[in-house]
């Protein structure tokens, strides 16, 4: 509206536009055209980018140099962040359970909840016995069956590849526990270590960046389902997940699977790499090296 008023003012004040422009040494036609199109841009009938593209060449020709260029504004979230993934070298794993313990310490998980476990398997019979240690965090599947079945979308896939749980929305139906092919989800029964470890309830891990203060009976996340978060709160401050950092044999690698030059990408492409229960089509983001 104001634009119209200003336009009208200009029209009445500057009646002899063409004559005025002709006094300048440069092209009158170009000036008139640019003015008309500039108005279009102001009115939203023309994209700014289009305007620049249209006049970049004529202006260079007229004025002899690059006169104006559209400033490339970085579009919000245009650059994709990392999409996290993990590689676990089973040949390096000694089955010491440090990852399980450090995970428990970092995430302060209650009794009965363990985001990471090390499954120990024995194959063959004596004397031809082989023991396999299989650390099992959440696979952070790209096609997570848990998120598929959650009735309230409390569990979902984040852009960074991590499968999150929104405890504020979770109704605690445990359908995801039934649906997870890796047994990577646990229900928080509200148990506590307080009686054997004074002050345990005073602090909770800020899971998904959400600090819920001390652990209180009847308050969230009690009564909801919990799972490995790839230590999202640590990633946000530039640290590796606790299990990766503490692994004594350096069997775990963590990084951006979207970056072809990252260690995890290279290891995941190795012929030694496999994923658990690949036949289910869940596309886990945790790779194992055998």
């Amino acid at each position: 509206m104001y634009l119209d008023i200003f336009n009208k003012m200009l029209e009445s004040e500057l009646e002899e536009k063409r004559k005025l422009l002709e006094t300048s040494p440069y092209s009158t036609e170009l000036g008139m055209q640019m003015a008309a199109d500039a108005r279009k841009v102001m009115n939203g009938q023309m994209e700014q980018k289009e305007f620049y593209e249209k006049y970049a060449a004529p202006m260079k020709k007229e004025f002899g140099r690059e006169w104006a260029a559209l400033e490339e504004k970085p579009e919000k979230n245009k650059k994709k962040g990392p999409r996290w993934g993990m590689v676990i070298d089973l040949a390096k794993c000694v089955g010491c359970d440090t990852c399980t313990v450090s995970c428990k310490a970092e995430n302060r998980t209650p009794p009965g909840v363990s985001y990471n476990v090390v499954i120990e398997e024995e194959h063959g019979s004596f004397p031809n016995v082989k023991k396999l240690n299989l650390p099992r965090p959440c696979m952070q599947c790209d096609k997570p069956p848990c998120a598929q079945v959650c009735p309230v979308r409390a569990t979902y896939k984040m852009d960074n590849g991590i499968v999150a749980i929104d405890a504020d929305r979770c109704i605690g139906c445990r359908y995801c526990v039934v649906a997870c092919p890796y047994g990577a989800r646990s229900y928080d029964n509200g148990f506590t270590y307080e009686h054997e470890m004074l002050g345990w309830e005073d602090v909770q891990a800020p899971e998904f960046g959400n600090d819920r203060g001390p652990r209180t009976k009847g308050k969230l996340p009690e009564g909801t389902v919990r799972k490995c978060t790839f230590c999202f709160h640590r990633l946000e401050r530039g640290e590796e997940p606790a299990c990766v950092e503490t692994c004594i044999g350096d069997a775990r690698y963590f990084g951006d699977l979207d970056d072809p030059n990252s260690i995890v990408s290279k290891l995941a492409a190795s012929p030694r790499a496999f994923r658990l229960r690949e036949e289910l089509g869940t596309e886990p983001r945790v790779f194992y090296l055998l």
């Binding site: 959650c150 109704i171 605690g172 139906c173 359908y175 229900y187």
Partner: peptide, 26 residues
Amino acid sequence: LDIGRPDHVFNAILYWNITSTMAWEI
């Protein structure tokens, strides 16, 4: 009875995950 957070039960009606059979059932 099988719901862990009875206080969140109305989420089951408010939020509808269309890929969830349970949401359809509710």
